[in-house]
């Protein structure tokens, strides 16, 4: 029993991460009428929010966090884009920046959400930039900011706020 208490966080955290990776895609397709209503292009980024919780609640040292980030990035690339590396670097960049900036923020909800906001912006900007490396970018920066970045941030900040305390207590219970 003691052993399970020791490792349960290490098991449950990646399982949820894995589940959210697929949930993002399912939400994108099943709620397409809302999220993809032309000209909007709103992305559910639950996976990134779950990674943010680990950084915000300072549990990254108890799990092989960076391994999870790379693995989830690679899975994302294999399953969703077929181009390896593009989202791996986006997940990594967002997590590295959030991790580095974490000491400058305190535990309150609002400053936590600000940190999450920075992570989301980094993630979206990196994905926008990788579109230029492989020459598939066809949306101007202005439209990207207006119809994708801003609505995506609004949606995901709300989700992050709703899940903030539940995630916090879950992490407390598990560890």
């Amino acid at each position: 029993m003691a052993f399970w208490q020791l490792i349960r966080f290490r098991v449950i955290y990646p399982l949820v991460l894995f589940f959210l990776l697929f949930l993002d895609g399912n939400l994108m397709s099943s709620l397409g009428g809302v999220l993809n209503h032309f000209p909007f292009h709103i992305l559910p980024l639950l996976t990134l929010i779950w990674l943010f919780y680990a950084i915000e609640f300072e549990v990254t040292n108890r799990i092989p966090f960076w391994v999870y980030v790379v693995v989830i990035g690679l899975l994302f690339d294999i399953y969703y884009t077929g181009i390896l590396g593009s989202y791996t670097i986006a997940f990594l960049a967002a997590c590295v920046v959030m991790e580095r900036l974490r000491p400058y923020f305190d535990e309150r909800l609002m400053s936590g959400l600000l940190l999450c906001l920075i992570g989301l912006i980094i993630y979206l900007l990196v994905t926008y930039a990788t579109g230029f490396i492989i020459n598939i970018a066809d949306v101007s920066l202005g439209r990207f900011l207006l119809y994708e970045l801003v609505p995506t941030l609004v949606l995901n900040i709300i989700i992050a706020a709703l899940g903030y305390y539940p995630a916090w207590s879950l992490f407390q219970v598990l560890s």
Partner: peptide, 9 residues
């Protein structure tokens, strides 16, 4: 069953 939640493609 799924749609990629990505900026491109």
């Amino acid at each position: 069953i799924s749609r990629s939640p990505t900026t491109w493609k």
